[in-house]
Design a protein around this nucleic acid. Structure first.
Lengths: 193, 193
DNA sequence: CGCGACGTTGATTTGCCTCAACGATTGTGG
DNA sequence: CCACAATCGTTGAGGCAAATCAACGTCGCG
């Protein structure tokens, strides 16, 4: 029996048992209480986080002092601030546990070493990034072609489980609308059905 | 003297001259007249395009029959529909030359073979995708935190050259606003200065 | 119990779109 | 080479979707 991460990687590339063991030995497991942070603004992001269990959020505070969520990470998703990671600059993001979480921490330095020892990992992360990029593109399609009401409805049908696990105001923030707006849409929906 | 693509790759990874030659031999050069297409809806996207000279656009037609541009590609940028490429499904995008263009065509199949022969390419594309993903994330930040007027102003100061090379209505489409709106903002700007 | 976090509802405001008409420029066929 | 059409940008009037401001209800928790 292997960790969820190894299972996930093997969906994309093949990994020998030795490689899997080596990789596992380089990761640290982290249990997080709801609302715990692994990154706060001003700090450099030095790791990539794989969510084994629970739900994380990546967000920042806008000029108008509003939380803007840019990404959620649930089971089998990586979450990090690639910009800070890449440029080795302080982040302006928070990464926080929305629920009690279990994550695997892959430090950037360790990742670089592992790429030398397990070249196929480079491929794995290329594929992961391609998927993430495609998802980001699609999200922009939704933003540009749908009204906010359509976007909310679409979101809540495409990710029903999601919609239950995170509070309304976070969904609102992720969709870029106000909590009041979502409340109204829900009220309308309820009245119809 | 090497091709712009080799030069670009060498900014990210090191490539032997043999590798560079091999790679070059696997690429085809393509000259495009303004308004020529390399991808249209219904066709599968089978290649990744590197813009050597000129400007390309990736766009689709919305339900309301409006062109929505999701990406521009200028010198030293790759442009493709990763979704179609990845899932081997018909695309719903157009990829078109905005100006007369010169592009290098890397067929997906060829790319896969090359990864075996030149493993470091895998790293190159991982890094490119990471940059693209980060840019997409930042674009969403702009979308969520700025008004459309601010977004236009920000865009035209951050990419002044850009703003001159593509017609207004394409900038409008990329920013998700109407051409009329941009026109009004420009009028306002002119009145002030 | 009392306080803070979260959600709801109503009234008003506003940023941008839509529709429409009209110049200016480009480009194309006779 | 000119005439006419198509393309692109501008401007005005009116409308609407969602934000903002504000007050209130409710639940969970220290």
């Amino acid at each position: 029996m292997h960790s969820p991460l190894i299972t996930h990687i093997r969906k994309f590339v093949s990994l020998t048992d030795e490689e899997a063991t080596l990789l596992s030995s380089k990761l640290t497991q982290l249990k997080l209480r709801k609302k715990a942070f692994v990154l706060t603004p001003g700090k450099r992001c030095t790791a990539n986080y794989f969510v084994v269990k629970g739900c994380m959020r990546l967000y920042f505070i806008t000029d108008k002092d509003v939380e803007q969520i840019t990404q959620f990470g649930i089971e089998d998703w990586w979450i990090t601030d690639y910009d800070s990671l890449d440029r080795q600059q302080p982040s302006h993001f928070y990464i926080q546990a929305v629920e009690d979480c279990e994550v695997m921490v892959l430090e950037q330095k360790v990742q670089e070493e592992l790429f030398k020892q397990i070249p196929v990992l480079e491929r794995y992360f290329r594929l992961i990034l391609q998927k993430a990029y495609t998802a980001a593109q699609r999200r922009m399609e939704y933003i540009f072609t749908m009204t906010e009401e359509e976007r909310y409805r679409s979101f809540s049908t495409r990710f029903p489980a999601f919609n239950q696990r995170v509070p309304q105001y976070m969904v609102a923030s992720y969709l870029g609308v106000t909590p009041q707006f979502i409340s109204r849409v829900r009220a309308k929906k309820a009245r119809i059905s």
